[in-house]
Design a protein around this nucleic acid. Sequence first.
DNA 1: GCTTACAAACTTGTATACAAGCCTGTAAGC
DNA 2: GCTTACAGGCTTGTATACAAGTTTGTAAGC
Lengths: 253, 253
Amino acid sequence: MNPATANIEEAILSAILAGRINPGTRLGEQKLADLFGVSRTRVREAMMRLETRGVVQVSARRGWYVVEPSAEEAREAFQTRRVIETGLLHSLREVPPDVLKSLKEHVAMERDAIGAGDVHSRACLLGDFHIHLADALGNRMLTEIIRDLTARTTLISMLYQPTEKAEESSHDHEDIVAAMEEGDLALAARLMDEHIGKVEAGLDLTAKPDPLAGLRALLSPAVFAGNAPSVPHTHEHPHEHSHSHGRPATKED
Amino acid sequence: MNPATANIEEAILSAILAGRINPGTRLGEQKLADLFGVSRTRVREAMMRLETRGVVQVSARRGWYVVEPSAEEAREAFQTRRVIETGLLHSLREVPPDVLKSLKEHVAMERDAIGAGDVHSRACLLGDFHIHLADALGNRMLTEIIRDLTARTTLISMLYQPTEKAEESSHDHEDIVAAMEEGDLALAARLMDEHIGKVEAGLDLTAKPDPLAGLRALLSPAVFAGNAPSVPHTHEHPHEHSHSHGRPATKED
DNA sequence: GCTTACAAACTTGTATACAAGCCTGTAAGC
DNA sequence: GCTTACAGGCTTGTATACAAGTTTGTAAGC
C-alpha cells in the first residue's frame, strides 16, 4: 500500500484509539490533505479504508465523520469482543513466558499511570491491554481485528460511558494475567468475559447519544420556563458533536 | 457507500467464496471497469476495500492480484477461525429455535448437493455453513469478520488442499448442529475445534504454492531428460497461476 | 544459436478539473 | 416578528489526462 495513505490511516486510527478524536468528528478531505501535505486523492483512499474497517462513515457530499455507534452496534461490538477474546484465551494451551512477562509489564505501566494520575496515557494503556494480548500471540490477523474492535468500543465509551472505572479495569487486567500465569486459562477466559461484561454494563446504552447534550448543559433552566432565547448559532455541523465538554477521554476498559 | 463500488466488491468477494476465482488471478482495473461498465475510479475503490479485507493485493504498476496466502498466513487464518468460531459457540447460552431450524436446513442442503454430485453448489454450501452460523446469531460484525476469513481459507484450500473431503466435512457440520440441538454447546465448540483442525491438517502446507505446477504437469518427462523444447510462450503473467488444472474448486470445509 | 539491449505497449499512480448536492445566510413576503 | 424562498459558498463525487514504471516483443551483436 502507498506509505502516505498508510500513514494517514494509521494516524487517524491511533488517534481514535488514544481517545484524541471524538465520535461524530467531521474529517474534511481538503483539511486533512493540507494537514498531511498530500492531495485529496490520498486522503480519500485512507478514508475508504477506514470506512471498511468500521471507524468512519461518509455522508454524501457533506463529509467524512467518525462513527457514532448506535446502542445496537455497541452491543454487537461488545459481544464480538467477548467472543473473540474469550475464544483466544480458551484456545491457548499454555502461555509463553515472554508473553506473560510483557503482559505483566503492561499491567504495571497501567498501575503507574493511574497512580500518577496521568489521564491520557492511562486511557491509552487500558485499551492497549487487549491489543497487546492479541499481539503477544503473534497472530497479526487477530491483532488487527481486535484493534479495529477496540477502536469501536473506545468510541462507544466516549458516547455512553457516564463514569470512569480505570482502577477497576486495571485490577481486572491484573487478575486475568494472574490466572494466565497460574496456567488456568479457563479462569482467565471467564474473568475476561466478566471484565468485558462489566465494562458494557457500566455504559448507559439507553441514553441515546444526544447531539445537543453539550449545548443543553450550557443553557440555563430559564430556557425551559418558556422565555427561551433563540439557540445561538454555533456554526457547528448538526452531526458534529463537541463531546469535549470536560470529561477526559476514557477508554472502555 | 457507492452502490456501484459495493457491487464490484461484493461480486468479487462472492466469486472468491464460491471458488470461481483462483488465488493469484490478476484483476486488471481497466478490464474490470469495462466488465462492470464503470470507470477505473470505482474499480480502484473496490480493490482498495478488498485489500483492506485481505483478499487482494496490489503490485505496483503491475496490477491487482487475488492473494496467495503463505503457509504462515494459512496457519494464522485457521487459528483465527478456530478462536472465533469456538468462542462463538462457547459464548452462547442457548440456541434460538429458528436458528437451529435454519442450520438443519442448511446441512440438509449440503447432503443433497453431495448426493447429487453437484460439485459447485456443494463447495459453496460447505463454506457458507460457517457464515450461516454467524449470521444466525444476528451479529453483523461477527458475520463480516467470518466472511472475510472464510474467503481467505477458501483461497488457502485452493492452493494447498490435495484431497477433497466434502462428505466428512458435512458430517462434522451435522454433528455440530446435533450438539447444539441438545444444548451441549461445549461439545459443539469442541467439535468445531476438531473440525477446523481436521480441515487444516488435510492441507499440505509444506508444499509451497508453485507458480509452475500447472505448467510442469503439461510437460512430458522428456523435458527432464535433457532435450527440452523451449517453454512455449503462454502469454501468462508470471504471477498468474492457472490453478484451473482440472481439480474442482473445493472449499476448505 | 544464444544473449543482450532497446523500444513499444500496457498498467497503475496521482493530480486536477469540473459536476452535483448540501448547508448557511439573507432578504422578501405575510 | 415569523416563515419561506433563494443565492452563494463549500464539500464531496467522478472522470479524465498525464506521469511513471513494468512487461513483452524485436532486432542487433557476439
